[in-house]
């Protein structure tokens, strides 16, 4: 895979000197990274390295103690999550967080929430504008569900479908908000090898077909090496390496962070 990182591509997401502490623990320390438009960027690192914290700061769930996050050139540091989502950052969670007692269709429709304007009065009186908005929301959700082969689950409650399908519904929900950047927190965890393969295919296709940028945290090295254009490695809250996947794979610092003294040749 050719790297598209750097020159010529617009920076979509950028953090500068990002620092997040929890009490005495420094979860993320002075963390810088750039994500360029149209690439799949992976954030990897051992457990507790601070990857999810970076995600949570970027998506507004945590406020950083220092540093800044800018998205498409605008500073979004410390903004509320719903504000950041409306700006075009859509995410999924490490432990799937669907709206369990709602149908898959309603879950995916959630993505469009921040894109429609109708208020109380237009909802009460079902104005023409409100009805056409509702129609559009359904259509967007329907297109996503069909595209991801989940349409048959539309009327199932989210809690009742298989784990792998729940993961895909969560991604569909994020995509339904028509984001500029899709932020996936361990999308392949809990998936079997076949589902992981399908997910990789789907993401690769997505990045080509749609104007999208993907940032993911991933533990499965096959996924990381298979689809990333750029890999950033974290350990103990700091960035220890970044580069193209081939380079990262052989980087001694990365190998040390992952394997420590236990050298069985497998990345965890």
């Amino acid at each position: 895979m050719t790297t598209r990182h750097g020159a010529g591509n617009q920076v979509v997401l950028e953090t500068r000197g990002l620092t997040k502490r929890f009490g005495g623990l420094v979860a993320v320390a002075d963390f810088d990274f750039n994500i360029h438009k149209g690439e799949i960027c992976s954030l990897i690192g051992p457990n507790g390295a601070g990857k999810t914290t970076v995600f949570n700061v970027v998506t507004g769930i945590y406020k950083p103690e220092a540093g800044s996050v800018s998205f498409k050139g605008r500073d979004i540091t410390g903004r509320k999550p719903h504000d950041i989502a409306a700006g075009g950052v859509a995410r999924t969670f490490q432990n799937i967080r669907l709206f369990k007692n709602m149908t898959c269709m309603e879950n995916v429709m959630a993505g469009q929430h921040c894109r429609i304007r109708s208020g109380i009065l237009s909802s009460l009186f079902r104005t023409a504008a409100q009805r056409s908005e509702e129609q559009r929301v359904r259509e967007i959700a329907e297109v996503r569900l069909r595209q991801m082969d989940l349409w048959r689950f539309r009327n199932e409650l989210a809690k009742n479908i298989a784990y792998g399908s729940q993961r895909m519904i969560e991604i569909a929900r994020a995509l339904a908000s028509v984001p500029s950047i899709l932020v996936l927190d361990e999308p392949s965890s809990g998936l079997n090898p076949r589902e992981t393969e399908n997910l990789m295919e789907f993401l690769k296709e997505l990045i080509v077909k749609e104007e999208l940028t993907i940032l993911l945290i991933e533990h499965d090295m096959n996924v990381v090496m298979g689809i990333s254009d750029w890999v950033t490695v974290m350990d103990e809250g700091c960035k220890i390496a970044e580069g193209r996947p081939e380079k990262i794979y052989n980087d001694p610092k990365v190998i040390e962070a992952y394997l420590g003294s236990d050298g069985n040749g497998q990345m965890a």
Partner: peptide
């Protein structure tokens, strides 16, 4: 949290 992250105020 998921509602907030998907854009619900």
């Amino acid at each position: 949290a998921a509602a907030g992250a998907i854009g619900v105020d």
